[in-house]
C-alpha cells in the first residue's frame, strides 16, 4: 500500500546538514500494524511525517497505492491527508473550542460531508471508542485517555487507508495506555493499517511488525504471526 524507496531527509545544508533519514526502504502492506521503535532522534518522527505527507523527502520517493506523493501539489497533499490518512498525536491535538463530537465531525465536514451526516457518524465513532456519553464535552472536560479516544475517533472520520499514531500512549498512564493500545489493536484486527511510533517496547509484543531504527536507518524489521484473541 505504501512504499518508501531510498528516502533521505536532510535538514540544513553544507557542514551544518543533519541527516534525519539515510536511505530508508520500507513497505507497509494493507492490514499491517507497524511499530517504529528506536531511541530519540533516530528519525522515527521524521519518517512518520513523510508517511503522512506532511513533509517531503530530500531524496528518494514515497508511493501510496502506486501514486508518488512527490507528484502532488500542496492542495492535493492536503486532500491526501484528509481522505487517506488518520493522524493520532501524542498530545491529542483536539481543537479546544469544539466539543468531542464536533472534533470528530471536523475532518468529515472538511471533506464536504453534510452536518447532519457528519454528526451522525461522529456519534457512531464515539460509541465505538465508548465515549458517546461525553460527546458534548469540551476537551478540557475530558481525561487524557478520553481525549486520546476522541482523537482516535477523529482519525477514523473519513475512513482512511492508513492510521499514523505518533506515540499515542506517550502522555498517558499505564491503564489508559493499555486501553488505547487495545483500541488500536482492535482497529487493526478490523483490517485497518496502522503505523505507530513508540518508545515503549512493552507494546510491541502485541504488534505484528516491529521496525527498529537507529541514526536515520532501519536496523531491524521483524514480522511476527500473532494469535488473534
Amino acid at each position: 500500500m505504501i512504499s518508501v524507496n531510498k528516502v533521505w531527509k536532510t535538514y540544513g545544508s553544507g557542514e551544518t546538514a543533519v541527516h534525519a533519514l539515510r536511505g530508508i526502504d520500507l513497505n507497509v502492506m494493507k492490514g499491517d500494524f507497524v511499530a517504529l521503535l528506536g531511541p530519540s532522534g533516530c528519525g522515527k518522527s521524521s519518517l512518520l511525517h513523510l508517511l503522512g505527507a506532511m513533509d517531503v523527502p530530500s531524496k528518494g520517493d514515497i508511493t501510496f497505492n502506486d501514486q508518488s506523493l512527490g507528484n502532488l501539489n500542496q492542495r492535493q497533499l492536503a486532500e491526501h491527508r484528509l481522505m487517506r490518512i488518520g493522524f493520532i498525536f501524542q498530545t491529542f491535538n483536539l481543537i479546544p473550542s469544539l466539543t468531542a463530537m464536533e472534533n470528530v465531525a471536523l475532518p468529515m465536514k472538511f471533506a464536504g460531508v453534510g452536518t447532519k451526516e457528519a454528526n451522525h457518524k461522529a456519534h457512531q465513532l464515539l460509541e465505538q471508542v465508548q465515549l458517546s456519553n461525553r460527546s458534548t464535552h469540551l476537551p478540557s472536560e475530558l481525561s487524557g485517555g478520553q481525549r486520546q479516544r476522541v482523537a482516535i475517533a477523529r482519525a477514523l472520520g473519513n475512513n482512511p487507508d492508513l492510521i499514523l499514531a505518533d506515540e499515542p500512549t506517550g502522555n498517558l498512564d499505564s491503564e489508559n495506555g493499555e486501553m488505547i493500545m487495545e483500541l488500536l489493536l482492535n482497529l487493526n484486527r478490523e483490517g485497518r493499517t496502522i503505523v505507530m511510533v513508540t518508545h515503549n517496547p512493552e507494546w510491541t509484543d502485541k504488534i505484528s511488525r516491529v521496525v527498529r531504527m537507529r541514526d536515520g536507518k532501519l536496523i531491524e524489521s521483524q514480522q511476527r504471526e500473532l494469535q488473534i484473541k
Binding site: 506532511m54 500542496q74 491527508r81 484528509l82
Partner: peptide, 16 residues
C-alpha cells in the same frame, strides 16, 4: 499555531 497546524495535518487546505 498548534491548533492551525493540527487543522492542516488532518487535511484542511490553505483555502480552508
Amino acid at each position: 499555531r498548534k491548533e492551525i497546524g493540527t487543522l492542516k495535518a488532518i487535511g484542511a487546505t490553505k483555502r480552508k
